[in-house]
Design a protein around this nucleic acid. Structure first.
Length: 354
DNA sequence: AATCTGGACAACCGCCTGGGT
DNA sequence: TACCCAGGCGGTTGTCCAGAT
């Protein structure tokens, strides 16, 4: 669509602008199968007319299966505000403390409304500081100002989250924990926050080849008191029908050679589906994928059998029409949307964070 | 109903950093 | 040590869309 500036380098012949569902399918299929060890070589190997950077951004910011979708929770917003106060525009580090959120997403959220949300607090804080004769503030004019002001205002609404907040507060800290919400940060008071965060791995580490099954539980290392701890993430309940179709090992996905855009696809491996409908649905998906990848021999119609659409629609909130129109968008509407509550729920805080 | 406006967000660019040679 | 390359990061931009006029 011609977003952004002119190309920085001569990428003649490469696609630009918004990604099409077909491109998304190619990228998903390739990374699911081979991972992403080399972004520069990836588009060529995957048959994508995109630069490696574009592929990387698309995967990290949009296609990654462990991304949360939907609005930011109040806790997440407060975490962003506080971390931004501590770190400034270090979006990647802030994102590292918010599992499932990307730096780009956080950056956008900050620029669009959190910044405005914080502005009144800043004014209020500044006014209070004047009245207090500026006693022992020492951080006026620094990002920490926003942190302390935001923390103060959040006391009444979010103090119940305590140290078990799922929003990544384990990475936050406060030099002057003067309210309830920051009490749990006391243990961090002697830790250099910047060092901590530098060592913090991305909260949602892009999958390396071979990619982990998105349906399996995973763990993350995080920075708690400067010591890496393993966090057991809840099982992401992505519809197995979707993932098994993409994932080459657990279900009837094409074998490796089929993903190679240059190799002819001879079919699928054994499908362990429990019903004919599921098997048929798998076939339908694979057919579409293979057609898109140019691996589908006969130029058959791309319309799924109505029964298959009904079946897939049974686990799709969008129904058969959407599936018929665009299986990739359906994938986005289905899997991540289902996964989101699982990522956010903190029924067992100890199992999620800290 | 048509037009305008501003928010939201995906995508791009350019720079920086770290690893390899 | 210097250079090259790939990956990563932060800033910026263009487009879409919903709400306001």
């Amino acid at each position: 669509m011609g977003r952004g500036r002119a190309p920085c380098c001569a990428k003649v012949g490469l696609n630009r602008g918004s990604w099409t569902p077909q491109e998304d399918m190619r990228l998903i299929a390739y990374i699911q199968k081979h991972g992403h060890t080399n972004w520069r070589a990836l588009p060529k190997q995957a048959g994508l007319l995109r630069c490696g950077k574009s592929c990387r951004l698309r995967w990290i910011n949009y296609l990654r299966p462990d991304l949360k979708r939907g609005n930011f929770t109040a806790e997440e917003e407060e975490t962003i505000i506080r971390l931004h106060g501590l770190l400034g525009n270090k979006w990647s580090k802030i994102a590292a403390c918010l599992p499932g959120r990307t730096d780009n997403e956080i950056k956008n959220v900050w620029n669009t409304h959190l910044k405005k949300k914080v502005a009144p607090r800043e004014k209020q804080k500044a006014g209070a500081a004047d009245k207090n004769d500026g006693a022992a503030s020492g951080d006026a004019g620094t990002p920490a100002t926003a942190a302390s002001s935001s923390a103060s205002s959040s006391t009444t609404t979010h103090n119940s989250s305590g140290g078990n907040d799922n929003s990544g507060d384990q990475c936050g800290t406060s030099r002057e924990p003067d309210d309830a919400i920051d009490v749990y940060l006391l243990r961090l008071e002697d830790i250099d926050v910047s060092d901590m965060l530098v060592d913090a791995p991305p909260a949602a580490q892009p999958c390396q080849a071979p990619m982990l099954s998105p349906c399996s539980s995973s763990s993350l290392t995080t920075c708690v008191g400067g010591v890496e701890e393993l966090i057991e993430l809840p099982v992401i309940e992505i519809e197995p029908e979707i993932w098994s179709l993409i994932h080459g090992e657990s279900a009837g996905a094409p074998d490796a050679s089929c993903v190679d855009a240059t190799a002819p696809c001879t079919g699928t491996t054994a499908v362990s589906s429990t019903s004919e409908a599921e098997e048929a649905a798998n076939d339908w998906w694979l057919e579409n994928l293979e057609k898109e990848l140019g691996l589908w021999g006969p130029a058959e119609d791309t319309q799924a059998h109505p029964d298959l659409l009904d079946h897939i629609a049974s686990f799709s909130p969008l129904g058969a029409l959407e599936l018929e129109r665009d299986p990739v968008s359906t994938y986005f509407q289905t899997a991540p949307a289902v996964a989101e509550p699982e990522l956010l729920v903190v029924d067992e805080p100890s199992a999620v964070l800290l």
